[in-house]
Simulated scan of single mutants.
Amino acid sequence: MIIVLKAEASEQDANEILDKIASLGLKPLYMPGVERTVLGALGDERVLRQLHLDAYPMVDEIKPILSPYKLVSRELQAHDSVISVGGVKVGGNTFSVIAGPCSVESEEQLFGISQMLKQQGITMLRGGAFKPRTSPYSFQGLGVEGLELLKAAREEFGLKIVSEIIDPNDAKLMHDYIDCYQIGARNMQNFRLLEAVGEQSDKAVLLKRGMSATIEELLLAAEYIINAGNPNVILCERGIRTFETATRNTLDLNAVAYLKQKTHLPVLVDPSHGTGVKSLINPLSRASVAVGADGIIVETHLNPKEALSDGHQALTADDFATLMADIKPFVAATGKSL
């Protein structure tokens, strides 16, 4: 439920109502605005009748939150959220590009890619230290050694680190190595994992849509993270599984436009996994800009033929330079900046 206070309401008036909400076992929310202060109450809203909030002189309006996802809904917050990834802003008037290899393989590989990205003005490096793979025989990542290499790349090149977490017990382990936890498609509804990163409230979380997940399920997964205490969530559309076999997945760009209507969270697109076809990454990236995405995350590798995972969809240095040049006018046309 949303409680809109009158313009003249003081912080003391707000705190009085918040204390009453908490006394009923509900979760109180305090959202001061420029013109009005808005309060929220999450839980069984039926018990709010005991408070008779309409009798409070400083309460102007009471509205229920109709969507099943409360904290991520535009009903609760109309303006867009801007999320900090180690000080780099995602959302708002910026179009963000996150790039790097599927898996961290070696210092030479990671530093070479980091240098290339730095030259292109990229500030966020993605790289997997722990890799959930469909086959148990595929490369599973370097683990802690990979995290050490990512941390070294951050120190050497000043890049912010985005890396996938697959075990709730690794949340604290990874904390000092990364700037943003990535929740992969296979773990979107691993609720204990969502809660674990939700407890790390000083780190951003990039939440990818599951391969067969509905938009509502994605938003409810985000709700788990925020409800656990971490509001710094970035959504990512990375393609869903359909009957089509021409591409690795079906990149659902209409989901991006729909999400922008329903949630205040930033929305990124992953055209690498969304298509699995290197030649389609560029046009789908341009389409992502046009449909309102807040950024893209793409896979890059200086020698894709030798990549230990997803080399077929990784962009070379020349490919990536072409991509950045091609999306630039599209980004400018939306009024955003790279």
Rank of each mutant, 00 (worst) to 15 (best):
A7H: 14
E8Y: 15
E8G: 07
S10M: 06
E11G: 14
E11Y: 10
L18R: 13
I21W: 02
S23R: 11
L24N: 02
L24I: 02
L24T: 08
L29M: 11
Y30G: 02
P32F: 11
P32R: 10
R36D: 11
T37M: 14
L42W: 01
Q50F: 02
H52K: 15
L53W: 01
D54Y: 11
P57F: 08
P57K: 08
I62F: 09
K63L: 14
L66D: 12
P68W: 06
Y69P: 00
V72R: 03
S73V: 10
R74K: 15
E75N: 05
Q77K: 15
Q77V: 12
D80K: 12
V82R: 04
S84Y: 03
K89S: 14
T94M: 10
V97P: 09
V97Y: 08
I98M: 15
S103G: 07
I113A: 00
M116A: 14
K118I: 04
Q119P: 00
Q119T: 06
Q120K: 13
T123A: 15
T123G: 08
M124W: 03
M124Y: 04
L125H: 06
G127A: 08
G128D: 09
F130V: 11
P132Y: 06
T134L: 08
P136E: 08
L142D: 11
V144P: 09
A153V: 13
R154D: 09
E155C: 03
F157S: 07
F157K: 12
G158E: 07
V162H: 02
I165Q: 09
I166G: 14
I166S: 15
D167F: 03
N169P: 01
D176E: 13
D176Y: 11
Y177H: 07
I178M: 11
I183C: 09
I183Y: 05
I183K: 05
G184P: 12
N187F: 00
Q189D: 11
L194I: 02
E195A: 10
A196V: 01
E199G: 03
S201P: 00
R209M: 03
G210S: 00
A213L: 00
I215T: 14
E216R: 04
E217R: 00
L219D: 02
A222M: 01
E223W: 00
Y224F: 06
Y224D: 05
A228C: 00
N230A: 09
L235D: 11
C236N: 10
C236R: 09
E237H: 06
R241A: 04
E244N: 12
A246I: 05
T247Q: 02
R248G: 05
D252L: 13
V256L: 13
Q261N: 12
P266I: 09
L268T: 05
S272H: 04
S272C: 06
S272N: 05
G274I: 02
P283M: 12
S288G: 14
A290G: 08
I296D: 08
H301L: 13
D310H: 09
G311Q: 06
H312D: 10
A314Y: 07
L315C: 00
D319N: 03
M324P: 04
D326P: 00
I327M: 03
A333M: 12
S337K: 12
L338G: 07
